[in-house]
Design a protein around this nucleic acid. Structure first.
Lengths: 148, 148
DNA sequence: GTAATTGCAAAGGCTTTGCTTGCAA
DNA sequence: TTGCAAGCAAAGCCTTTGCAATTAC
């Protein structure tokens, strides 16, 4: 298939250029489909929708591109995903720092966060149990590793 | 094996009674082991430690009891685990409400959280990218389901 | 005695990997 | 043309489930 870039593909090609990504048809459709999914879709859900436009696409391609988009800042992970369930017994009021590279979790005392959010106007009868704050960034060890 | 409860088992038996749990040997060791693990262990890591004291224990038992402890409030999940990766494209400043029953995620505008945390005194050279607040509780639908 | 729990093994979901063919620059 | 990407299928975690044997109350 060969054709000159249409007007509609311009912005996507620029987005790819800005993020150092090769502009493929699959990536474009993936991105466009995600724009129509305002929630927090799983790779499987995205796959189902993309498949309507590219029946031959594989789930592995969806995973690969989602990871790439997240890595390049086009998408965000809704919460850091640690590969397996993590539990804790710590009862003191605290939150977490999560390294976006190595996924290491470190406790942070609540008072070190400064002012706390005061929950107000919560939509539709949601009954609050607690809130959890993740400070996301790069830990010292990963910063050191990056520099090398 | 039959013996009268020792002095040391008292607190654990009370803890079980308080949370409506049967006091089994496996549960007690699991709980004691977790008290010596201050971080955020995975079920596998807990299993390895418990196995030193109860070689015959199975990983399935560890999983079952961890879930039970979480359900009864003895342990906490470090972050809500959605079963699969979730991503989003939403660029507006926002955070999330997560239902601890059905794991549904709903966006919440940052301004509806009221005052925001001001990050200060972050331990050991952690380079902050962003922070993510999860308001954890029961959504309206699950509240309704519970009542019935 | 009755109900709940354990251990085992098998099954199930989600995600990644290796490799060949095809496409982008 | 040269390397990056896609598709496919197989493998790899992590976690749950079903069931018989055992234990707690």
């Amino acid at each position: 298939m060969q054709h000159s870039p249409s007007v509609e593909t311009r912005p996507f090609r620029e987005l790819c250029a800005d993020h150092g990504l090769t502009a493929t048809h699959q990536r474009q459709v993936l991105y466009e489909v995600m724009q129509t999914m305002p929630g927090h879709p799983s790779p499987e859900e995205v796959y189902v929708r993309v498949k309507k436009r590219i029946p031959a696409i594989s789930l592995a391609t969806v995973y690969k591109n989602i990871h790439l988009f997240v890595e390049r800042g086009v998408l965000k992970e809704v919460s850091m995903h640690h590969g397996s369930l993590r539990v804790e017994l710590n009862n003191h009021p605290h939150h977490h720092m999560v390294c976006s590279h190595c996924k290491a979790i470190t406790d942070i005392r609540e008072k070190d966060l400064g002012v706390l959010p005061t929950l107000q106007r919560l939509p539709g009868g949601f009954q609050v149990e607690r809130y959890a704050i993740d400070v996301i960034g790069i830990c010292a060890a990963c910063q050191k590793a990056e520099r090398s």
